[in-house]
Design a binder for these strands. Sequence first.
DNA 1: TCATATTTTCAGGAATATCTGAAAGTATCG
DNA 2: CGATACTTTCAGATATTCCTGAAAATATGA
Lengths: 194, 194
Amino acid sequence: MTLPPIVQSFVLHFGEMGGRWGVNRTVGQIYALLFLSDRPLNADEITEALGISRSNVSMGIKELEAWRLVRKRHLPSDRREYFQAPDDIWQIVRTVAEERRKREIDPTLTMLRDILMETPTSSEERHAQERIRQMHELIELLTGWADDVQKLDNESLMQLLALGAGVSKLLEVKNRITVLAGGKRRGPAGGDLA
Amino acid sequence: MTLPPIVQSFVLHFGEMGGRWGVNRTVGQIYALLFLSDRPLNADEITEALGISRSNVSMGIKELEAWRLVRKRHLPSDRREYFQAPDDIWQIVRTVAEERRKREIDPTLTMLRDILMETPTSSEERHAQERIRQMHELIELLTGWADDVQKLDNESLMQLLALGAGVSKLLEVKNRITVLAGGKRRGPAGGDLA
DNA sequence: TCATATTTTCAGGAATATCTGAAAGTATCG
DNA sequence: CGATACTTTCAGATATTCCTGAAAATATGA
């Protein structure tokens, strides 16, 4: 692997971290390399840059495509395929969130719902089901919120982030207004404002 | 493993999912079991319930303690240690977020900052550094926000979640008020309200 | 303190995951 | 069509992670 030091540190770190996420070292490295590159790379360039086998690159790219984190490109008068990582870093966050949701959250919700259909036959099971109900409720709330926020444009999202804990203050204000107006609380999310 | 069906499905699923998170199957199963249990369990009970070795339980518990996801308990006139998962499900979310941050985000931020100190020696490196700068900025923004939100009490948090995309509307209202008042924008997070 | 109960550690075996080279599969050009 | 350039697949080799039993360490009660 012969890369500029800046690129190398980043690539190696992402390789390590890849393991913590649902991908292996190679996949992390390939993504990191494409993310930093100022032009699309072909498979042989990746092979050489990372010092891994051609077939490993092929499999890694395949996985990254499944995650929608790389796109295929074609350069004129070159029959090889080139790969690049999407530019918009906000979009990347959205994509990763969507994919993780699909792979981790949705199957879990399904399992939880299935269990909630069962009839408990002991106090032990009754308690277990109650805990599962709590967890189900929490996850639904979190993912529902994430779905909503995900639809925000970059600017609104950034504003929300900049707000930080200030949200709390904003909520107080909202409560005051809502109460004064005799508005119904807990209606469809935020629908009673503006 | 002989468990009530409700508990068994949940435990097995968490075992699988454990792999996707940074823990192994056993750790996921132990946590799931404790989460559902209506009383603290000792190591032998866990051993038997999950059909794994005593030493494996010991290691699993150790890891869960490092995650601050289980607490040791002592029952009167029993010298064995008992374990239980914290009750408050909101607190669990906060704990997991904190730990993941410590393990994954902070080291990454350090690495990114180190790279940003380097002086690029080619246009390729210059571009790479610019991408890294973008990523650094984004992560700082996201984690800063997460820090703030994490400090909210359960009720405020729940309200924020219920708001969903309504945040967008709320932000519009805030903008209108702020602009009308000739207020400074982008001050310390949300500080110019209420 | 000793005897016993309980927990932790850890070397090595078992199970998984990852990576590679060779072969098969596809697309493109003449 | 071939012939060639390129890509994907996959069986087996390699590397990594996980789990266990035995032994060491620690705690408790007499």
